[in-house]
Design a protein around this nucleic acid. Structure first.
Length: 277
DNA sequence: TGAATTTGACCTTA
DNA sequence: TAAGGTCAAATTCA
């Protein structure tokens, strides 16, 4: 692999993210959301650069435990050879379903896990039967902090959520849409992913928005955004990493912030404010 | 009454 | 064979 160009790109991306961070002088809530994103971007770059600088350090052990993974390890079940993302969500209200991630889920099982003090709940997409959506997620309360939920997602939604459907039906005039898109391009990053395992392009990108309105949702999502609970750099990484593969029902003028991570494929294009990971 | 959840049994994998 | 994951009947809820 050609190391230097990749290093240059990553370094440039990190610098640009730093610049963006310096320009976060919008409304507080929007800035908070953007700050999350920037911190996560920076964290990813730092890790990538670290890995490149230490080729013999495989890094997974050093990386935070909530990084996306492909579950292709030989230690995992073969059935887990699918995209998955483990997220961490802090629940302020201590309810069992810690977050509304924009998708509708149906619980189909619960299991006591060996060594875990809390059972693991299994959810599948409500539209599994109707639309054949195979997305599932697992929710488990953390042993260390019972106010924290660990959520892992498997597969991506192939379904059309009702919220998305209604949005599509209520589409804006093209000109207005284009203007809005132009605006949001100034502040949005777009992550696109390759997916190992032969399912590239099969699923839509994850996305979430950074409009002030949606920020409120995001803040609820991210444990009501309590900076006192999540302050460290790694924690911030956790939160951003935990961005559910959902919240796709966010009207961001057709300019969603797509988070769809594949750390094995990094293709960073800064020229048009899009980042491909 | 239909939809969602619970829970024990069963299946799959390491 | 143990543990994780899923199924499906029973139960609960709106």
């Amino acid at each position: 692999m050609e190391k230097r160009p990749l290093m240059n790109e990553l370094t440039q991306g990190r610098d640009l993210a730093n610049q963006l961070k310096g320009h976060l002088d919008q409304t507080l809530s929007a800035a908070q959301t953007c700050e999350f994103l920037v911190e996560r971007i920076l964290s990813s770059y730092e890790k990538a650069l670290s890995m490149l600088n230490n080729p013999f350090d495989e890094a997974p052990a050093a990386a935070d435990s909530y990084s996306p993974n492909h579950c292709t390890s030989t230690k995992k079940r073969k059935t887990m050879d699918k995209w998955s993302e483990q997220v961490k969500v802090c629940s302020g209200n201590m309810v069992e379903a810690p977050l509304n991630d924009g998708y509708s889920w149906r619980k189909y099982g619960q299991k006591d896990i060996l060594g875990a003090s809390h059972p693991r709940a299994y959810y599948r997409c409500t539209h599994r039967n109707v639309q054949g959506c195979l997305a599932t997620k697992q929710v488990q309360r953390s042993d260390e902090d019972s106010s924290v939920f660990e959520v892992s997602y498997r597969g991506r939604h192939t379904c059309i959520q009702a919220t998305q459907l209604s949005k599509a039906l209520d589409k804006k005039p093209k000109k207005e849409e284009e203007e809005e898109e132009k605006k949001c391009m100034d502040r949005a990053f777009s992550f696109k992913a390759g997916y190992k395992g032969g399912e590239e392009g099969l699923f839509p990108c994850f996305s979430f928005a950074s409009t002030p309105i949606e920020t409120e949702k995001l803040e609820n999502l991210f444990c009501d955004f309590n900076p006192n609970l999540q302050t460290s750099d790694s924690d911030l990484s956790d939160i951003i990493n935990s961005t559910p593969n959902s919240v796709t029902n966010s009207p961001f003028g057709g300019c969603d912030l797509n988070l769809d991570l594949d750390f094995e494929h990094v293709d960073f294009d800064v020229s048009d404010s899009e980042m491909f990971v």
